[in-house]
Amino acid sequence: MAHPTNPPGFLLANLDKVRHWAQTRSMFTVTFGLACCAIEMMATGAGHYDLARFGMEVFRASPRQADLMIVAGRVSQKMAPVLRQVYDQMPEPKWVISMGACASTGGMFNNYALVQGVDQIVPVDIYVPGCPPGPQSLMHGILTLHDKIMSGEIAH
């Protein structure tokens, strides 16, 4: 949805900050585990790396309850419409993290079956490199997203 540029002013500017802060503090992720990267995503959510520290341990099964989609793994041509549909069902504001080489560019599989980069079907905010990206990389990606939202760079 199009947003008007924020009018200058003390109250609204601060209100925006509060809004951004609120958006970053408890992002709900829609589970979109696809392949090997999904295992690392689950490992990130599990006890050892503990995504709960960033208020993100809840992986929602329903896209209607989520505001972040982590596309973790390779997106096949058959999965592409499904992915787009799930994305479209997420309420605004929403963000997408493309996790891993496959989701970002197709990775090592330059062939008929894969979508060569999930950015061909949904807009992506953060790309996390790696094959698979370790939990640390994913957390770095998430924190980068938080920073960007806080700074208003990719506000929705």
């Binding site: 041509q77 008929y112 079956a113 060569q116 949904v122 807009p123």
Partner: peptide
């Protein structure tokens, strides 16, 4: 039938209809 040898090796464009709608 993609695994036939005369089917191209490299990637094909995304085939589903909504793909151009990236905003």
């Amino acid at each position: 039938h993609p695994l036939r040898k005369d089917y191209g090796m490299s990637s094909v464009p995304v085939q589903f209809k909504g793909s151009h709608q990236v905003k």
